[in-house]
């Protein structure tokens, strides 16, 4: 079985598991039957309550997990290609710090009340403003544009993170909610949030996938790529813009989910080789499956309380990564 097929099987398993597993276990057969009945085929056997649990609680959370996992994984893989840096992740240019500052501002402003509904909007704006600042600071340098952007990203991230920390410490009443947001969670998912994120993710993923061949060319370095006819700066700007937009949209509703963007593309690279024509599409499927599996663990392992999903992605991802790395070494 090829890696592509295996990742699709994993995705199917993650989807069915994500719908079936929970405090109220519902068999996958009955879920599928109910899904078909919505399409006018046969009769569903779910009670109204079970139907609500599946289609209004678990399904939107599942879909948001799929979109977020796919987006973060493809953005991480694209950044690793565009910067030729294995440590690149979607948060490299300041998306996380900017979104964190925006969200913290919203939560702190609301004081003791619940996390306000406009938190995603501020997080989104903060993320894009941070990447914009990074680009203005580092993107115009003529030489070593890649590394100057990374350094600008480090500077912008540090600055915004210190501002965020200051803001967070200044208001003890909301500190817990800030932490919950920062660690990332799909718990607040609704069909509304899914439809907000969907267009950004679809467009961003398509742009990143269409840049896969260009990323393969860029593996010979900036000067050689340009001599081969690749408009390196334009491709880099396009990939950064697409990845940032998609990542900002995901982060604004799901918080800062770590580890997916770096571990999934590397795992895929270990399995399928170095061509981005294979790494990126399989990362889309693998990232979606991985995040949904992690979320299912996050919401069931310590039920009724939830684990932060970022904890699970690292806890599951790191051992799997080390295992594959070792198996590959032994196979060589």
């Amino acid at each position: 079985m090829g890696v592509a097929t295996a990742s699709l099987v994993l995705l199917a398993a993650a989807v069915l598991g994500g719908l079936a597993i929970g405090p109220t276990p519902i068999g996958t057969g009955r879920i599928l039957g109910d899904a078909l009945s919505h399409l006018g085929l046969g009769h569903g056997t779910l009670s109204p309550l079970q139907s609500t649990i599946i289609w209004q609680l678990r399904a939107p959370r599942l879909v948001l997990g799929l979109l977020s996992g796919a987006m973060l994984a493809v953005a991480g893989g694209s950044y690793q290609g565009v910067f030729r840096n294995p440590l690149a992740d979607p948060y490299l240019l300041g998306v996380a710090a900017g979104a964190g500052l925006g969200a913290t501002f919203a939560i702190v402003r609301a004081g003791a009340e619940a996390t306000p509904s406009w938190t995603p909007l501020l997080a989104f704006a903060g993320a894009l403003a941070a990447v914009g600042a990074t680009w203005l600071l580092g993107g115009r340098a003529r030489h070593a544009a890649g590394s100057s952007l990374i350094l600008a990203g480090v500077a912008v991230s540090s600055l915004l993170t210190s501002a965020q920390t200051f803001l967070q410490q200044s208001s003890t009443s909301s500190i817990a909610r800030v932490y919950i947001w920062l660690l990332g969670s799909l718990a607040s998912a609704s069909w509304h949030s899914v439809f907000i994120v969907l267009p950004y993710v679809v467009v961003s993923v398509l742009i990143c996938l269409s840049a896969a061949r260009a990323l393969d060319v860029m593996s010979v370095g900036e000067d050689e790529s340009r001599s081969l006819g690749l408009p390196v700066r334009r491709v880099r700007l396009l990939v950064i813009a697409a990845s940032s937009l998609g990542t900002a949209a995901v982060v604004s509703v799901a918080g800062l989910i770590g580890f997916v963007g770096i571990i999934v593309p590397h795992l895929v690279r270990l399995l399928v080789g170095t061509s981005y024509r294979r790494i990126l599409p399989i990362s889309v499927v693998g990232g979606a499956a991985f995040l949904v599996l992690c979320d299912t663990i996050a919401r069931t392992a310590l039920a009724p309380s939830e684990l932060p999903i970022g904890v699970v992605t690292a806890l599951v991802g790191a051992p799997v990564f080390v295992l594959v790395l070792n198996l590959r070494r032994r196979a060589r």
């Binding site: 593996s219 010979v220 370095g221 000067d223 050689e224 340009r226 001599s227 081969l228 006819g229 690749l230 408009p231 390196v232």
Partner: peptide
């Protein structure tokens, strides 16, 4: 870049 690459090709000193 593309127009130039159709007119001149490069064999660099230290190819990556």
């Amino acid at each position: 870049e593309r127009e130039r690459a159709r007119l001149v090709s490069l064999v660099p000193q230290h190819p990556e």
